[in-house]
Design a protein around this nucleic acid. Structure first.
Lengths: 130, 130
DNA sequence: ATAAAGGTTCCAGTCAGGGGAAGGTCAAGA
DNA sequence: TCTTGACCTTCCCCTGACTGGAACCTTTAT
């Protein structure tokens, strides 16, 4: 199977798949013409990678997850640890963004948004109250 | 004022300040010895930049915001537009992260996390249901 | 025969800095 | 006066996870 079909089936850009090969996440075979020859198992793995990336796992997380995925004797605790670490990071990011959102939405709602130059947003950014 | 003091007062790493000069966000003078010579107004601006970056504005947003900040005749609407665009992006990110969080926390709580190899997290990542 | 569509590699760029080397400058203490 | 250590300078490479583009090769359809 050529990269185009894999791209469609795994819903990943061809560039991304080539990149994943470059960093050793997938290892497709090669045809005599130099084209990558993907097996079903490669597609399967790329789908897995796409799902994991969409959930915000880093590439290194993905490397660990696919290694566990391919290890039939793995302990589920190993997978769970990666996932719950990631969950904690997601929670921290959400909290950060919510704090930003609160501050900014206060500012936006306090700004007239008209032609006059006085703007509470800029006034607030000016303060040294970090 | 040398970069070290500015770094302390603006609460930004010296590397960051040099970078901001490189991309034209600040333009400190130079002493005869080649050291950067910052004015109070530079510090003021760097504090502003630090605040804006902490609120997640991009560098280009910051460039626009400082231009408006320094333009005494600006319309507050211009500032408000930048800020509310940014607010929308923050909201989208929060929604994304919350969706990830929901999916992942379901998975984590359904995983035994023991020594056995069967793991619902991996099983779910395997599905093509993107 | 030719053109379009698909494949290949390689290079460079993104964003917002961080790390570290090699070297110049300054202030304080012996 | 010398030296030590803190501070400053530029320079270049590195990050993550790709993306864009150039130059070139192969396959397929007309």
């Amino acid at each position: 199977m050529n990269i185009g079909e894999v791209s469609t089936r795994a819903n990943l850009p061809a560039k991304t798949i080539r990149y994943y090969e470059e960093i050793g996440l997938v290892k497709p075979l090669r045809d005599t013409n130099g084209y990558r020859a993907f097996r079903e198992s490669d597609v399967h793995k790329l789908v897995f990678l796409g799902r994991a990336r969409a959930l915000g796992f880093t590439i290194e997380d993905c490397r660990a997850l696919t290694a566990l995925w391919e290890d039939k004797a793995r302990a589920s605790a190993d997978v769970r640890n990666i996932a719950s670490d990631h969950l904690i990071q997601i929670e921290a990011k959400i909290a950060d963004l919510q704090a930003m959102h609160e501050t900014l939405s206060h500012l936006v709602s306090s700004c007239a948004g008209d032609d006059r130059p006085d703007c509470p947003i800029l006034q607030s950014l000016e303060k040294v109250t970090r």
